[in-house]
Write a protein that binds this DNA or RNA. Structure first.
Length: 623
RNA sequence: GGUCCCGUAGCUCAGCUGGAUAGAGCACAAGUUUUCUAAACUUGCGGCCAUUGGUUCGAAUCCAAUCGGGAUCACCA
């Protein structure tokens, strides 16, 4: 299945035998041969020329000759300076392809990547219930979902969780504003999506607050003073205390308004086609957080200041002193995170890693969180991992929800769908689709564009989104890859029409159903072994690209980077398009050739489909 | 001020566990369809990899400094 281990061990032997150099196969580094040179893998001999006491060229040549003589999968080599370019035999590639097609469970199903898979939790989305989701959340949600799917694909046990920030001062703001100025408005009465309605009152609060502050400043107060004296700010503090005390009216208001928000969020999550195994609510974990703070205080890990607030001193690990609980006993952000993390490790015994998909602006917070648990001696403290991603910037700069410069998630989804619709209609390939089918397809394409656009960027890096330019549908985009898939499916349908059952028997892969549980085995056997072509030169590029698939997904899993899957599947689509351009598939010179090419097309389509699925993108049958 | 991240083509991004002539897409210019979907394919144009110094056989990649941009250091979340 893999040539690397064999080559590496052969090189190890060569070094030992030729130069008495002892190296372990792990120390041998192989690179993919650059496309300008002949060969498949390259071994750089420079590091070994000191010990070999020969020139780079001579060393490379001698090793190359050893490999050719002693390693059956090496068919040839060439030497450029200290670069030994090794050619892998056609037989290897033919066998690889035959096995990849016939033994999908070893290739398409990557669940056996690790001998002992992990048990991981991925937290993503994590919205506040005071405003609708925006572009920043979308990066979070798409990233979290995709990372979770990738980890699942390589065999880990994964819990996808959401953490709803449903309590705290910020939530009280929209509640207070609605109470004071809302006149009983509801999502039904104003035909507004619930999260948008609540968001409107969050903005309203901020507006009134600023007015009051400005009023006091005009009277000669400093800004800080005015912010403390503003009546509405005092009302907020009172409301939070009432909430924590379980005041009946406050709780009812809170329950009602949060209900509106959840309904709105669910609509958006459905449009994005993401899901969660479990939802945590901070209102249900902050009390546990307080308990942890109190017991930490008793343990002596924390200390109390004169005003009654509780702190931790992290100066010994290079951080600052951090407040863990306010003087009035109400919890702060980190208090509830303490409770939530603890609860999760209680809920899931054996959980090894808790991956927080949270923006890089909170790096400090998560360092503190981890240090606190270390100080408390929690055995799982090192399993906390902050998957820190970069902010989404607009051409005008940072998105600010209070300044109205956010790109709303629902608006964006609608606009992209419309864009996809316009383009699709302009191409006019879907005459026989009814309106429901067509609408579904527009959404599939729109989401393909949006998700790919966001996920192809390295998570760690900040990214720029220009709403005015919308999103491309050509080039390195989701629809490009979806199109490649649709075109392959079209060819396969033609192949089935021409060759009938023979194609169906040839294509066991295409009939496999992907489910969350794994692949169903339909028991069909591949016939491809009897169809091996004389030469595979015209197939080599696509076969080599297919070969990289398991490694690409594994690397994406290890670096938590869907961008690597995106880059891989783009490469694969390009390779296939090249192949498609140069080779007639169904009407080839011989039936055997057609069937072989159909098999290549089929395997490619399956890998594309699976990669897209890992990115949360659907692969349409036509477009 | 302390800590952290970033700086690659006009634009958006790859490449960064050191390796050959730094890659894609968009944009721009030219071409490809009697043949399986042209949302495709081919070709061209475009680069002191922020700057300077160091490490070495070799640096976009590692180290240091400088310049430029961003984040964070809240009894906000």
């Amino acid at each position: 299945m893999k040539f690397e281990p064999e080559i590496k061990s052969a090189i190890t032997n060569a070094l030992q035998k030729l130069y008495s150099i002892t190296a372990s196969p792990d120390e041998i580094k192989l690179d993919e041969t650059k496309k300008d040179f002949e060969g498949d893998v390259t071994f750089v001999v420079f590091p070994f020329t000191k010990s070999s006491k020969k020139s780079p060229e001579q060393t490379a040549t001698e090793i190359g000759e050893y490999l050719k003589a002693n390693c059956s999968i090496v068919s040839g080599f060439n030497v450029v300076k200290g670069f030994l370019n090794i050619s892998i035999s056609d037989t290897f590639w033919k066998n690889f392809f035959a096995n990849a097609s016939g033994l999908q469970e070893l290739f398409l199903d990557l669940k056996k990547t690790y001998s002992s898979p992990g048990h991981l939790m991925v937290e993503y989305s994590s919205p506040n219930t005071n405003k609708p989701l925006h572009l920043g959340h979308m990066r979070n949600i798409l990233l979290g979902y995709s990372v979770a799917e990738i980890l699942l694909a390589v065999g880990h046990k994964v819990e996808k969780v959401n953490l709803v920030n449903d309590r705290g001062i910020h939530i009280c703001k929209s509640m207070l504003a609605w109470k004071k100025y809302g006149h009983g408005e509801t999502p039904q009465s104003s035909h507004t999506k619930g999260d948008h309605l609540v968001g409107k009152y969050y903005v309203e609060y901020d507006k009134r607050f600023k007015e009051e502050v400005a009023h006091f400043v005009n009277k000669g107060m400093t800004k800080e003073e005015a912010e403390k004296q503003a009546p509405i700010a005092k009302e907020i503090q009172e409301m939070l205390l009432k909430w924590e005390a379980g005041d009946k009216d406050t709780m009812e208001l809170w329950t009602m308004m949060n209900g509106w928000v959840y309904e709105g969020f669910d609509t958006t999550y459905n449009k994005l086609a993401v899901d969660f195994d479990k939802v945590y609510y901070e209102s249900q974990t902050y009390l546990l957080g307080k308990k942890i703070v109190e017991s930490g205080l008793n343990q002596g890990a924390f200390f109390r200041k004169e005003d009654g607030s509780i702190w931790i001193d992290l100066t010994d690990v290079g951080l600052d002193q951090k407040v863990l609980m306010r003087a009035d006993g109400t919890s702060v952000y980190i208090t509830q995170d303490l409770g939530t993390a603890s609860l999760r490790f209680e809920d899931y015994a054996g959980l090894q890693q808790l991956i927080y998909v949270v923006g890089n602006e909170q790096e400090y917070h998560f360092k503190v969180l981890k240090e606190i648990f270390k100080k408390l001696g929690r055995p799982w403290a090192n399993g906390l991992f902050h998957l820190s991603y970069g902010m989404v910037d607009l051409p005008s700069g940072k998105m600010k929800s209070r300044e109205g410069t956010v790109v709303d998630a629902d608006d964006l989804i609608r606009e992209i769908d419309e864009e996809a619709e316009m383009t699709t209609k302009a191409l006019g390939k879907l005459d026989n689709y009814d309106s429901d089918e067509a609408k579904k397809l527009y959404h599939t394409i729109g989401m393909g564009a949006l998700k790919y656009f966001i996920l192809k960027v390295d998570p760690k890096k900040k990214m720029l989104f220009n709403p005015a330019e919308s999103i491309d549908l050509n080039g390195n985009t989701g629809p490009f890859i979806q199109y490649t898939y649709a075109r392959i499916r079209s060819v396969i349908r033609k192949g089935e029409a021409v060759f009938g059952d023979e194609v169906e028997n040839l294509l066991p892969v295409a009939d496999r159903k992907y489910t969350g549980e794994g692949h169903e085995d339909n028991g069909q056997q591949s016939l491809v072994l009897s169809l091996q072509p004389e030469t595979i030169s015209e197939y080599k590029n696509i076969i080599k690209t297919l070969y990289r698939y398991p490694a690409a997904v594994k690397e994406a899993a290890e670096s938590f980077s869907p961008a690597l899957v995106a880059a891989y599947v783009y490469d694969l689509a390009k390779s296939f398009n090249h192949f498609y351009h140069d080779n007639v598939i169904v009407d080839a010179a011989s039936k055997e050739t057609s069937l072989y090419r159909l098999q290549i097309a089929s395997l490619t389509s399956e890998v594309i489909k699976e990669c897209l699925r890992l990115l949360g993108i659907e692969a349409p049958e036509r477009m």
